[in-house]
């Protein structure tokens, strides 16, 4: 077991132990915080596939997070009012079932990632950053100006959606769902990194010319990575909407994209557990500093600046030392 693996195992146990402690100490709000950490970490795991493995600096992942959120909001709001989404060409009804919502969220955000990726990956570097940011903003303005689903005010869902055999309104049971999904997603990301596809993607990040020389197309590798990445972030969006029982255009805002990226950077870019550490620290800072000062974003900004300028491996990088990402 390498040092990073030991740290990872410790982190997974900590994420599990904290809400269990809160459960027995009867602190439901702490369980909700842990759930939030798990969901935001999931969004980060998604982005990390594009950013860490593929080297694609996407500043528009809020688009997928928001699409996942709205997939949940739209389906559940139709189920709430018993008003079918479409009657023609065939009947589509709303649903309150989490698994179906997840599938819809993953498919729609994957489709959006395919479209955005196909266009933005024609460019690279700073163009790519600006274009993904702009497409994210496009969804934001669309959500604001489309009044059917609440427009600027967003959309409230009164009862959390259901999962067969579980009571999702019980915080610890909902946490269990998000924890299992996060672990599955991280397992998938680790497998992906070691698969032939992941190795090729990693190679395309380091040296696109060589990858081309051996007969593979970096564009196609990156597009597939971008779509997978968007799907996972979309799933996180659906869960986040279910946590809050509320969706609003804020999920699409560029700050959301920036924050998802910040989780990865705080934790350590390309590290499997980086997003989890980053999300946990972010939520802890928000909770602790937010209680001390209304202006806690200043401290976050200073911290982030110091990490970028002086501690480039993030938290896991400083603890586990330099090494191969995902090892």
């Amino acid at each position: 077991m390498t040092r990073e693996r030991k740290i990872n195992a410790g982190l997974a146990l900590a994420l599990l132990a904290f809400p269990l402690w809160a459960y027995f100490a009867n602190e439901p709000f702490m369980i909700t915080l842990a759930t939030k950490v798990a969901i935001l970490a999931l969004a980060g795991v998604g982005l990390n596939i594009a950013l860490g493995q593929g080297g694609l600096v996407s500043l528009g992942h809020a688009a997928f997070f928001g699409i996942g959120g709205y997939a949940m909001g739209i389906l559940a709001s139709h189920a709430q009012t018993f008003d079918p989404i479409a009657e023609w060409p065939f009947l589509i009804e709303g649903t309150k079932s989490m698994p179906i919502i997840w599938i819809v969220a993953v498919l729609t955000s994957g489709l959006a990632a395919l479209l955005i990726g196909a266009l933005s990956l024609r460019t690279s570097g700073v163009y790519f950053i600006m274009i993904t940011l702009a497409f994210g903003q496009m969804f934001y303005y669309f959500a604001i100006s489309w009044p059917t689903y609440g427009g600027e005010d967003g959309l409230s869902i009164y009862v959390r959606n259901g999962f067969p055999g579980l009571n999702t309104l019980d915080p610890i049971q909902f946490f269990a769902i998000t924890f299992v999904i996060l672990m599955l997603a991280m397992g998938f990301a680790a497998m992906l990194a070691k698969s032939p596809f992941g190795l090729a993607l990693n190679a395309a990040r380091q040296s696109p010319q060589r990858v081309e020389t051996v007969g593979m197309t970096p564009y196609r590798l990156r597009l597939v990575a971008f779509v997978i990445s968007g799907m996972i972030t979309g799933l996180a969006g659906a869960l986040f909407a279910d946590l809050n029982r509320f969706v609003s255009p804020t999920m699409f805002s560029w700050q959301t994209s920036g924050e998802i990226m910040v989780f990865i950077i705080i934790g350590g870019i390309g590290r499997l557990y980086g997003p989890l550490v980053g999300a946990a620290l972010f939520i802890a800072l928000e909770h602790i500093l937010g209680g001390l000062s209304d202006y806690w974003h200043i401290y976050l900004g200073v911290l982030l600046l110091l990490i970028v300028l002086f501690a480039r491996g993030g938290v896991i990088g400083s603890l586990a030392g330099r090494g191969h990402a995902h090892d």
Partner: peptide, 22 residues
């Protein structure tokens, strides 16, 4: 690289915005 530039200037936005609000 561009990622570091994005993050550092994102941090500057946070500092400037909250500073102005303050």
């Amino acid at each position: 690289d561009h990622l570091d530039q994005v993050l550092a200037t994102f941090a500057l936005i946070l500092i400037f915005s909250e500073g102005t609000r303050w």
